[in-house]
Simulated scan of single mutants.
Amino acid sequence: MTLPAPTAAVLIIGDEILSGRTRDTNLNTLARFLAALGIDLLEARTVGDRAGQIIEALNALRAGHDYVFTTGGIGPTHDDITADCVARAFGVALPEHPDAVAILEKRYGAGEFNAARRRMARIPEGGSLIANPVTDAPGFQIGNVFVLAGVPKIMTAMLEDVAPRLRTGAVVHARTLKVSGVGEGDVADILTAASQVARAVSFGSYPFGHGSTGEVGTNLVIRGRDEAAVEAAASGLLADLTAAGIPAAAVI
């Protein structure tokens, strides 16, 4: 029996994201990372540096998905409260992890390893460290939750240590048909009919060029885990568009 694909959610934490001062790119990075492993990212939430919201969101997400990835809030300052919230969500203590202390002591040295930096050595009881090859300060995993840094370069680097811990699934294949000079409304009926025939795959419609002086059109995307079914559905849709007098081109 084939197991269903693992599912995942992302919890982005930080007032700086909600205020607009910082542009989030971590969600896109995680989406691509998970897609390559055949893991379906089904949900993403963004919350500020408020303990109640973080705990509530984390408990909901970890109950509903195989994996949860959090980004942000594990630095040395007073508003870095993610570790505290994760410990409270799991109902465990938040002691200093001896391996994290050793890593940070080596990084900073006795004179620079102050109380603020020691905060980054606190790991919820039962958690395991996630390596940080950029600045050394580790993330951690507890249960199905992976707690990662908010800085994109560091978060991305941490994924190397995360990948081997995940159960993978079949990769989703995708094909795109680019329809130039035609809006979504002009292809909606054709797309609906195709989706009713090829039920093993999914169809999406994504307009481009609106509000600019450039090319206007629609990208039609077919996705599925069975590559042959995706190819057949794309060929069928292309034939339907051609028969309707709508020019389309396959995009690799």
Rank of each mutant, 00 (worst) to 15 (best):
M1W: 00
M1E: 03
P6Y: 00
A9K: 09
I13W: 03
L18E: 10
L30F: 11
A31C: 11
A31N: 13
A31K: 06
R32I: 03
L37F: 03
L37M: 08
L42G: 12
R50S: 06
N59S: 14
A60C: 06
D66R: 15
F69K: 03
I74L: 02
A83C: 09
V86N: 06
F90Y: 12
F90D: 02
G91A: 09
H97L: 00
I103E: 04
E105N: 06
K106Y: 09
E112A: 15
A115G: 02
R118Q: 14
P124V: 06
G127F: 01
V134M: 13
V134G: 12
T135Y: 02
A137S: 03
P138Q: 09
V145C: 12
F146H: 14
A149K: 01
A157Y: 03
M158D: 03
E160D: 15
E160M: 01
V172R: 06
H173S: 13
S180N: 14
D189K: 08
T192K: 14
S195K: 09
R199F: 08
R199A: 08
G209Y: 03
G209R: 01
T213V: 11
G217M: 10
T218W: 02
V221A: 07
D226L: 04
S235N: 07
G236M: 09
L241D: 01
I246F: 02
A248W: 10
V251I: 13
